[in-house]
Write a protein that binds this DNA or RNA. Structure first.
Lengths: 124, 124
DNA sequence: CCGCATCCGAGTCGATACTG
DNA sequence: CAGTATCGACTCGGATGCGG
């Protein structure tokens, strides 16, 4: 089974890759936290209390891999690791904020649609 | 430069909900197809050949539930079902296209970052 | 033609325990 | 402090078969 997309446009693949990243359960939460400035691992963990250590680590790794986040290790004892957005990460905030603003602005319309839908679908 | 998304607030949930929707494997593909105009179920199925009937059905249901897509049944024989974007769905195209444009524009930077990352991580 | 029901494998998420 | 390792629960997506 190949992840090949029959959709001809090459660009489509990149769009989907990006969506897969930011569509992750924690990605946006982390990126928006970091938009305020560098944070330590434990700060992020404390700030997003519901996240598990594992998911925080792996999400940060993914973001680092794609060049949105920079990881800075200070080999002291105890060790210290800071994370911050790269230029690319900051650039991403633009469209991301736009989407976020849209979601906030239109949440009522979505909510209405959901209630209308449920009203018409007995059971389910 | 400053985060426009209010963290720790109710808004955050709506943003996440939206991302969960459009982060789905097929959502964007379907929405972009429908942006050109109404389409029948079988047209969509044919156009996105790799999608399974199940996923097409369930994704359309999700989009309908959130008010992005309207479903019109013509009870003829054989039956006929058309799907089209609602006004809300069309509005969503704005931020969605912005994100898509960003992905296309910055694909090289992401690609570079990935290669740089891989070069520094032997094995893994 | 449309799409629901069911089963199943693969990947994801998360709690817990352990290391430098 | 900042992770890694492991294992189970859960969810997603695909295949197939049936029904209106």
């Amino acid at each position: 089974m190949k992840p090949q997309i029959a959709h001809n446009s090459v660009d489509c693949r990149h769009v989907k890759q990006l969506l897969n990243r930011i569509g992750g359960k924690w990605t946006v939460l982390i990126v928006t936290r970091l938009s305020r400035g560098p944070m330590r691992f434990s700060e992020l963990k404390r700030d997003i209390s519901e996240i598990s250590q594992k998911m925080l680590t792996s999400t940060l790794r993914d973001l680092e891999e794609d060049g949105f986040v920079r990881r800075a290790v200070t080999p002291s004892i105890p060790p210290r690791v800071d994370y911050e957005l790269t230029d690319l990460g900051h650039d991403l905030l633009g469209p991301l904020d736009a989407l976020g603003a849209w979601a906030v602005k239109n949440k009522d319309r979505v909510e209405e649609a959901r209630q209308r839908y449920r009203a018409l679908q007995p059971g389910r």
